[in-house]
């Protein structure tokens, strides 16, 4: 997990064409195919938010959202 952040994987299943590029190149093995052959974040807690999946998704179907809420609360 990226330090002090939670990472959300927004995957548009309508746009995803299931090429598997994101799954194959993920350095932390976070992603896998769901039963419909589309990408899903199976192990989001392992994500380091490198965003390689987002950068390389040919379908613009993945958005990685980093949330810093925990840290934010601490600061206040």
């Amino acid at each position: 997990m990226a330090k002090g952040k939670t990472v959300k994987h927004l995957i548009d299943k309508e746009w995803c064409k299931g090429c598997g590029i994101c799954i194959h190149f993920c350095p932390k093995n976070v992603l896998e195919f769901d039963k419909h052959g589309k990408a899903k974040a199976a192990r989001p807690e392992d994500c380091i938010a490198c965003k390689l999946c987002e950068l390389r998704c040919p379908d613009l179907a993945i958005q990685i959202i980093e949330e810093q809420e925990v840290e934010h609360e601490k600061q206040e």
Partner: peptide
């Protein structure tokens, strides 16, 4: 982008979408 035209017409795995993203 103009989201109403997505998903795009390119084949699964076509690199052109990555160019678009970049």
């Amino acid at each position: 982008i103009r989201p109403r035209f997505f998903p795009h017409i390119w084949c699964p795995g076509c690199g052109h979408g990555i160019v678009l993203g970049s």
